[in-house]
Design a protein around this nucleic acid. Structure first.
Length: 147
DNA sequence: AGCCATGCACCG
DNA sequence: CGGTGCATGGCT
């Protein structure tokens, strides 16, 4: 095995309200805390606002393209103050999965360097449809019966 | 350092 | 024209 290139395989980011767009922001993505940067390819600081397009596969097999951007104008202009990383282009992913603030997004890299994305809910879903659609865990002697 | 917010460009 | 993302300012 050769693990010299990457040792961080999975990261988890708890979504802020702004990340999900709930606060009226339309930045379309989330901030990447520096503590989790080693998961991502190095963007360097040679140019202003460098970026990569990264493809992530979700658990249903859909592929999403997000932009990993380093906003670093702090190092390129007198008045620049930006020095942070963001992953953008996630609006549709967040909407389709109905992700809320405090939910988590988990990014993983498998052995072939393929990126995957999944999510984890920390809040109980709003009880609009709690009547009949709770998650059901089936034991081996149970089966689903259609009425 | 991280999160909130927004004017504008682009694109369907 | 509405939704989306860029780039950036500002607040905590």
């Amino acid at each position: 095995m050769d693990n010299s290139s990457q040792n961080v395989v999975a990261i988890k980011k708890i979504l802020s309200a702004n990340d999900t767009g709930k606060t009226g922001g339309h930045q379309g993505g989330m901030l990447i805390p520096k503590t989790v940067l080693s998961f991502f390819p190095d963007l360097g600081n040679g140019v202003k606002n460098p970026r990569y397009k990264l493809r992530f596969r979700d658990e249903e097999g859909n592929v999403w393209t997000f932009n990993f951007i380093y906003y670093n104008n702090k190092f390129f202009s007198e008045k620049g103050k930006r020095n942070e990383y963001r992953l953008t282009g996630m609006t549709r992913f967040i909407k389709e999965n109905n992700l809320q603030p405090n939910d988590s997004i988990i990014l993983e890299r498998n052995s072939s360097m393929e990126l995957c994305i999944k999510y984890e809910r920390s809040q109980v879903q709003e009880s609009d449809n709690s009547e009949c659609m709770s998650i059901l865990k089936l034991g081996s002697s149970w089966k689903v019966v259609n009425l």
